[in-house]
Design a protein around this nucleic acid. Structure first.
Lengths: 112, 112
DNA sequence: CATAAATACATAAGTAAATTATGCATTAGT
DNA sequence: ACTAATGCATAATTTACTTATGTATTTATG
């Protein structure tokens, strides 16, 4: 786990990017996907995730579909066309930010 | 300029890294150095910078030396040995974080 | 030569985006 | 039977900023 400040500001970008790749996902699924993909280094907290999902929905960036699985409900989120644009902008901005930070801090990241 | 959330959490890392490379720097100099090196994409605000410098000094990570230049004062900051360790950790953590985010978001950063 | 911009410090009030804590309910594992 | 995992949600608190304000000197500009 990284010191919490670092991850700040990346939550929306992560959510939107994963939803551009996955058609639809539910909250808990997002937490597990991120945990798996980062080897546990990034763990989305529910207190941050759910309010953010609600906000993105209210802004028309995501739509929802509630599905009953057995007796338990799942709230699937899907990205809208306008959401895709925002996702793309967010990812581009983050990419640019990384390049800037690499220059500024003189980093040598080992890219797989 | 990046959306402000992104830069959050990087301020200490930036300050410490620059001070490992520069022997001593004063606050305003830090703002200009970062502005120059990032083509204006990152601009440290005084309201964030000075309190952070004071905190780092109180923690024994930085030491200060006040110098009079003409009639104006400059407060130079220098990093201590223990500060260097922390700087190194911060930079390593950030490097790791970038690598993780590149994987997670499937980024292709163009490195100079 | 007056005025604005740059240099140089500092602090206080307000805000955004998290964390932490708590709650409810179902299902799977031991 | 009890605990951990699945799955949602919200409220209180904290953190790390931004914005605003203040003081003072030096340099550039019309």
């Amino acid at each position: 786990m990284y010191s919490s400040e670092l991850i700040k500001g990346t939550l929306k970008t992560i959510i939107l990017k994963l939803l551009t790749e996955n058609e639809k996902m539910y909250g808990y699924e997002l937490t597990q996907k991120v945990k798996d993909m980062t080897g546990g280094k990034i763990q989305l907290t529910e207190g941050a995730l759910y309010p953010t999902l609600h906000a993105l929905q209210n802004q028309g960036i995501l739509t929802t579909e509630v599905v009953n699985v057995g007796n338990r409900l799942r709230k699937y989120y899907a990205i809208t066309p306008s959401g895709r644009e925002i996702a793309s902008e967010k990812v581009n901005e983050f990419t640019d930010f990384i390049a800037t930070m690499i220059t500024l801090l003189d980093l040598k990241p080992n890219l797989g």
